[in-house]
Amino acid sequence: MTDKKDFADSIRQKLEDWDYQLDRLTARLGDKRDEWREEAKQRIADIEERRDALEAKLEKLESHGEDAWQDIKAGVELAWDGLKTGLLAARSEFEDGK
């Protein structure tokens, strides 16, 4: 297995885990006040956009040869950090009972 494949597999696994977390967070929105629910829906939409951007970068990484993947890796890592930060912030805010 190549480093590129290992890296891509790792990010794909993280995406699956975060998809599950995002689904759980979305399902729990019904328990919150209407005004908070609308704000949370907007934050979730932002997170979903970040997730889709990460998926696109990951597909780009997977389609490039071994020589080019290191250049794309930094963008994938940056997109992952943005997705992770957004979801952790939303989950923290949600759990604080805003």
Rank of each mutant, 00 (worst) to 15 (best):
residue 8 A to M: 10
residue 11 I to E: 01
residue 28 R to C: 00
residue 25 L to G: 09
residue 48 E to A: 14
residue 10 S to I: 07
residue 34 D to A: 12
residue 29 L to M: 05
residue 32 K to M: 15
residue 18 W to G: 01
residue 4 K to H: 01
residue 31 D to G: 06
residue 24 R to G: 01
residue 57 K to T: 09
residue 71 D to G: 04
residue 39 E to L: 12
residue 60 K to D: 08
residue 61 L to H: 10
residue 60 K to M: 14
residue 4 K to T: 00
residue 28 R to D: 11
residue 57 K to N: 15
residue 36 W to P: 05
residue 51 R to H: 13
residue 48 E to C: 04
residue 6 D to I: 14
residue 18 W to M: 10
residue 75 G to D: 11
residue 17 D to M: 05
residue 28 R to M: 13
residue 10 S to Y: 01
residue 23 D to V: 00
residue 4 K to F: 02
residue 55 E to C: 10
residue 26 T to C: 01
residue 48 E to K: 11
residue 34 D to Q: 07
residue 11 I to Q: 00
residue 39 E to I: 11
residue 46 D to I: 07
residue 19 D to W: 03
residue 5 K to P: 01
residue 22 L to C: 14
residue 60 K to H: 12
residue 38 E to A: 05
residue 16 E to Y: 13
residue 2 T to F: 04
residue 69 W to N: 03
residue 36 W to V: 12
residue 16 E to V: 10
residue 8 A to K: 04
residue 1 M to F: 11
residue 7 F to G: 06
residue 5 K to S: 04
residue 28 R to H: 04
residue 48 E to W: 05
residue 56 A to T: 05
residue 65 G to P: 00
residue 21 Q to T: 13
residue 32 K to F: 15
residue 39 E to F: 09
residue 51 R to G: 09
residue 1 M to V: 10
residue 12 R to G: 04
residue 1 M to K: 03
residue 64 H to S: 11
residue 70 Q to M: 13
residue 65 G to C: 03
residue 58 L to I: 12
residue 33 R to Q: 13
residue 55 E to Y: 08
residue 64 H to T: 07
residue 1 M to G: 11
residue 18 W to A: 07
residue 3 D to G: 15
residue 55 E to F: 09
residue 8 A to W: 04
residue 63 S to N: 15
residue 29 L to Q: 00
residue 62 E to P: 07
residue 45 A to P: 01
residue 16 E to Q: 15
residue 38 E to K: 01
residue 74 A to F: 02
residue 38 E to H: 07
residue 55 E to H: 08
residue 51 R to K: 12
residue 71 D to Q: 14
residue 15 L to A: 11
residue 66 E to S: 10
residue 43 R to C: 02
residue 63 S to Y: 03
residue 75 G to M: 05
residue 9 D to P: 06
residue 36 W to Q: 14
residue 24 R to A: 09
residue 61 L to N: 08
residue 50 R to C: 05
residue 32 K to P: 03
residue 54 L to A: 02
residue 16 E to P: 04
residue 51 R to L: 13
residue 41 K to I: 03
residue 58 L to W: 03
residue 19 D to L: 02
residue 11 I to G: 02
residue 62 E to Y: 15
residue 54 L to F: 07
residue 32 K to H: 12
residue 66 E to N: 06
residue 61 L to C: 06
residue 2 T to A: 13
residue 68 A to I: 01
residue 71 D to R: 14
residue 57 K to M: 02
residue 30 G to K: 06
residue 31 D to S: 06
residue 46 D to V: 02
residue 17 D to E: 07
residue 62 E to K: 13
residue 52 D to H: 08
residue 59 E to Q: 15
residue 58 L to N: 04
residue 58 L to V: 08
residue 50 R to S: 14
residue 56 A to N: 11
residue 26 T to Q: 09
residue 57 K to H: 06
residue 14 K to D: 06
residue 29 L to D: 03
residue 68 A to L: 12
residue 45 A to W: 05
residue 9 D to H: 14
residue 9 D to E: 15
residue 11 I to H: 01
residue 2 T to D: 13
residue 69 W to V: 08
